[in-house]
Measured scan of single mutants.
Amino acid sequence: GSKLPPGWEKRMSRSSGRVYYFNHITNASQWERPSG
C-alpha cells in the first residue's frame, strides 16, 4: 500500500456510498486515486 500525496485523504460519499479522495489543502476532490 502506497501513501497518498500530501494533503489527500480517502473519504466516503454519503449520498452514493462511493469512496473518493479529498485534498484538505486545495479543497480538491476526485474519484480517481491521486498520484504523486
Rank of each mutant, 00 (worst) to 15 (best):
W8P: 01
S29A: 14
E32I: 07
Y20P: 00
W31F: 10
S2E: 14
V19E: 08
P6H: 10
V19D: 03
S2G: 13
S16V: 07
R14T: 12
S15W: 10
L4A: 02
M12K: 12
W31T: 06
R33M: 10
W31Y: 10
N23F: 04
W8M: 00
G36F: 14
P5V: 02
S13F: 09
R33P: 12
Y20N: 00
T26L: 05
L4Y: 04
I25G: 05
S16F: 08
P5Y: 03
Y21A: 00
R14M: 13
R33L: 11
P34A: 02
L4I: 04
Y21F: 06
Y20I: 02
F22K: 03
N27R: 14
V19K: 03
H24Q: 10
S35E: 12
S2K: 10
A28Q: 15
Y21H: 00
E9I: 11
W31Q: 04
R18T: 05
S29T: 14
Q30E: 02
G7P: 07
P34L: 02
L4F: 03
M12E: 08
E32K: 08
F22D: 00
G36A: 13
K10E: 14
K3A: 14
S15G: 10
K3W: 13
S13P: 01
T26A: 04
S15H: 14
Y20A: 00
K3Q: 14
R14L: 13
R14D: 09
W31N: 05
H24S: 12
I25T: 07
S15I: 14
P34R: 00
L4E: 04
T26G: 02
P34K: 01
S13T: 10
R14W: 08
R11T: 02
W8F: 01
N27G: 15
G36W: 15
Q30R: 05
G1I: 11
W31H: 05
Y21R: 00
K10N: 02
P5D: 03
H24E: 06
S16L: 10
S13G: 06
P6F: 13
Y20H: 02
Y20K: 01
K3L: 13
A28L: 13
L4M: 06
P5K: 02
P5Q: 03
L4H: 01
R14V: 12
K10D: 02
K10F: 07
S35T: 13
S16Q: 09
I25F: 12
E9F: 06
S13H: 15
P6N: 08
M12V: 15
M12Y: 15
V19I: 14
S35R: 09
S2D: 15
N23T: 01
N23Y: 04
E32T: 09
T26D: 04
A28G: 06
R18P: 01
G17T: 04
W8T: 01
W31E: 05
G36I: 13
E9S: 10
K10H: 05
K10C: 13
W31I: 07
M12W: 15
H24D: 04
P5F: 03
G1A: 12
G17R: 07
S29G: 05
R14N: 10
Y20V: 01
S13A: 10
R33Q: 08
P34C: 04
H24M: 11
K3G: 14
H24R: 15
Y20D: 00
P6L: 10
N27V: 04
G36N: 12
R33D: 09
Y21E: 00
R18W: 04
S35W: 10
I25R: 08
F22N: 01
R14I: 13
S29I: 15
N27Y: 09
E32V: 07
S15K: 14
L4N: 01
S35F: 11
E32P: 07
R33H: 12
R18F: 06
G1K: 10
P6K: 08
F22Y: 15
S2Q: 11
K3P: 15
Y21W: 07
L4C: 09
R33S: 07
I25W: 08
L4S: 03
S35A: 11
I25M: 09
E32S: 10
G36S: 12
P6V: 10
S16E: 08
N27W: 08
T26K: 03
S2L: 11
L4W: 04
Q30W: 04
S16G: 09
S16T: 14
E32A: 09
E9H: 10
E32M: 08
R14H: 12
K3F: 12
M12A: 08
G17W: 02
G17I: 03
Q30N: 03
E9A: 06
W31A: 05
G17A: 06
T26R: 03
P34V: 01
K10R: 14
I25K: 07
S2I: 13
S29Y: 15
L4Q: 02
R14F: 09
W8G: 00
Q30V: 05
K3V: 13
T26H: 04
P6E: 10
S29P: 01
P34M: 02
S29W: 15
F22S: 01
T26P: 00
F22P: 00
E9G: 06
V19H: 08
I25A: 09
G36M: 13
S16A: 09
E9P: 01
K3R: 12
E32G: 08
A28N: 09
N23Q: 02
F22L: 03
Y20L: 02
N27D: 04
R14Y: 09
Q30P: 00
V19T: 09
G17Q: 07
E32N: 08
P6Y: 14
S35L: 12
S16W: 07
E32D: 10
G36Y: 13
L4V: 03
N23L: 03
P34S: 02
K10Q: 14
V19F: 11
S13Y: 09
S15A: 12
R11L: 07
S29M: 15
L4G: 03
K10T: 10
Q30A: 03
A28F: 08
S16H: 11
T26Y: 05
T26Q: 05
R18Q: 07
P6S: 08
Q30I: 04
S15L: 12
R18V: 05
H24Y: 15
P6Q: 09
K3H: 12
E9T: 10
S16M: 08
P5M: 04
H24W: 14
N27M: 13
G7A: 04
S2H: 12
Q30D: 02
G36L: 13
E32Y: 08
G17K: 09
G17P: 03
S13W: 08
P6I: 09
S15C: 15
Q30F: 05
P5W: 04
F22V: 05
R11V: 06
V19P: 08
F22T: 01
E9D: 04
S2R: 10
H24L: 13
G17V: 03
S35G: 13
K3E: 14
H24P: 09
G36C: 14
T26V: 03
Y21G: 00
R18H: 06
M12F: 15
P34I: 01
P5T: 03
R33K: 10
N23I: 03
M12Q: 09
E32Q: 11
L4D: 07
R11F: 06
R18D: 04
G7Q: 05
G1M: 09
V19N: 04
T26F: 05
N27F: 10
S29D: 02
P34W: 04
S2W: 11
E9W: 05
K3S: 14
S15N: 12
Y21L: 00
W8A: 01
E9K: 06
P5E: 05
G7S: 03
Y21T: 00
W8Q: 01
T26I: 04
H24A: 11
G1Q: 12
N23M: 02
M12L: 14
R18E: 06
L4T: 02
